[in-house]
Every structure is written in C-alpha cells, then in structure tokens.
C-alpha cells in the first residue's frame, strides 16, 4: 500500500511536469490550429538560458523565471511574425507545420554547434531535495512545478474569460473569418497567442532545468508526451491539458511499476487510442461546432 501511494504521488508530480510543458502547446494548438513541432526546442532554448543564468550570473533558477517568460515571449512573437505569418495564406495549411519542423531541426543543430552534445546541468539550487511526509517523499522542485501548473492554468483561464484580448483570442479560435469580420486583427491575435504559448515554455524551462540537464535533444524527450496530453485533454482546453497530464503521469508511474518500464508507453498510447475512440475531441474538447 505504501508503494502504491508513493507511485501515485510520483505519478501526479510527473503529471505536473507534463502539464507545465503542455500548457503553451495546447494554447497554440487550440487557437492558431498549428501543431508546433518546435515546442520542445523552445523548452531546450529556455533550459540553456537557465543554465547560463545560474552558472554565469549565479542566480537561482526560479529568479530567472520572469526574465525567461519575457525572453521566450519575444522569441515566440518573432517566430510567429517572421516565420509563420508569411505562410499563413499558403495554399496548403501544412506548410506552417513543416516550417516548425524545420525550425526544430535548426534549433537542435544550433545548440549542437554552440554547446556541443554534452549535458549542461543547472545547479540543483536546493530544489532536488525531498520533503518527507511520513514514509512518503516529494521532490521540492516537482511540487513547485505542480503548483505552478495549477496557477498558470487558472491565470490563463481568467485571462481568456475576463479580458478583452482573451475574448478576441477565443473568438479567433472559434471562427477565424467571423472574428475578422467583427474587427478582430487576427494576425495580431496569432502573434500574441504564440508569444503567450512560448512564454509558458519560458516558465517551464526555469522549473525543469534544475531537475533535468539541458542537451540539444532534451525537447524531444518531452514533446511527444506533450502532444498526447494536448490531444487527450481536448485541443486548446487548458484545464483539459492539466487533467490529461496528470492522467498520463499516473498511468506512466503505475504501469512502469506494475507492468514494466519498457511497456509503459504501450499502456499510455493504448489508453490514448481508447479515449479518442470514445471521445474523438478529447476529454474536455469543444466538440462539434468549433472550427
């Protein structure tokens, strides 16, 4: 029983990690209708920046979170404005997706060029210690990620519901052409959305870096699971992504223990297919009617 509880705790904490990485992806997925294959590489860039900030400037990784959010926001804005926007009216919408694949490859190789293939470990800065609750252990860094995940989802939810910009973003997601007719500057909305999506990755990078060392391909480790989380939660649904992430985390942890570590992906993807069979729009998808 003790082991089971510990597995559940580990699973939820892992889910928190997936959640914080997936939030930005689901935003971009849901609003711009774009599969951003460079999402993991944005995380990688953020993790290298965290490493630089901690090692060269001696700052705590969490202190670096606000500047990283800003930097990644700007990077996101630039990507949408100068790489994706020119392709917006391409005859085939998939061109944009290919552009993000290209961006991903370019960023991985840029990192190889600048940093080489070695690992860059951000100092633990105290977050790799465990809190013990009776017989159970929770890693401080993971707990922080979990809480931040909830806060980010709640904050974005309020932003989307309560602000004018948020409503415009939702309107664009529901129907691009109609929103345009109502006077929404769709291109600007896309730029802001991509920026916010990337900014979420900035926060994730600052939280993830002290737990996982940065390497050029670190993004690819997380991005496939992030896609599953996004589709499972219902594309574009923020709380859906959060619940989806927790579910994946739990399944990952329990199946690795009770079945086998190399079969956990089989279990995760089997579950994924099953859920899509019965709920094609995901757990919290908008269902029919959305674009």
């Amino acid at each position: 029983m003790e082991t089971f509880v510990q597995l559940v705790i580990n699973g939820l904490m892992l889910g928190g990690l997936f959640a914080i990485i997936s939030v930005g992806l689901t935003l971009i997925f849901g609003i711009i209708r774009l599969v951003n294959f460079a999402h993991g590489e944005l995380l990688m860039v953020g993790m290298y920046l965290t490493w630089l900030g901690t090692v060269k400037l001696g700052l705590h990784p969490y202190v670096l979170a606000p500047p990283l959010v800003l930097v990644l926001f700007v990077i996101g804005v630039l990507i949408q404005r100068f790489i994706l926007q020119p392709l917006l009216d391409a005859r085939d919408a998939h061109v944009q997706i290919f552009a993000t694949v290209g961006l991903s490859t370019a960023l991985i190789n840029l990192a190889l060029l600048v940093f080489g293939a070695d690992l860059y470990a951000t100092p633990a800065s105290g977050v790799r210690e465990s809190i013990t609750l009776g017989p159970f252990r929770i890693l401080i860094g993971q707990l922080v990620m979990f809480v931040c995940g909830i806060v980010v989802v709640a904050a974005l939810h309020l932003f989307m519901e309560r602000t004018y910009l948020g409503r415009a973003i939702r309107a664009t997601a529901q129907h691009r052409a109609a929103a345009q007719l109502m006077g929404v500057d769709v291109k600007r909305i896309y730029i802001v959305t991509f920026g916010i999506g990337a900014a979420c990755v900035g926060l994730a990078a600052a939280l993830v870096a002290p737990i996982y060392p940065a390497s050029p391909t670190v993004g690819t480790y997380f991005v496939l699971t992030a896609f599953v989380v996004v589709v499972l939660g219902g594309m574009g649904s923020l709380h859906g992504a959060f619940i989806g992430a927790l579910l994946i985390g739990l399944v990952d942890s329990l199946s690795a223990f009770y079945i086998a570590p190399d079969l956990k992906e089989v279990v995760i993807f089997a579950l994924f297919i099953l859920i899509l069979l019965f709920r094609p729009t995901g757990l919290f998808g908008l269902g029919r009617g959305s674009e």
Binding site: L7, T225, P261, D262
Partner: peptide
C-alpha cells in the same frame, strides 16, 4: 531485469521496483 526506453523522463517507478 528491467529494460526501459533511453528517452525515459521518469525512473522513479523503476527505482521503486
């Protein structure tokens, strides 16, 4: 005897085993 994928992001369950 526990094989695991090289791109694993969480080994806590393996360690519990």
């Amino acid at each position: 005897t526990l094989p695991y994928p090289a791109n694993i992001v969480d080994m806590s369950a393996l360690i519990l085993r």
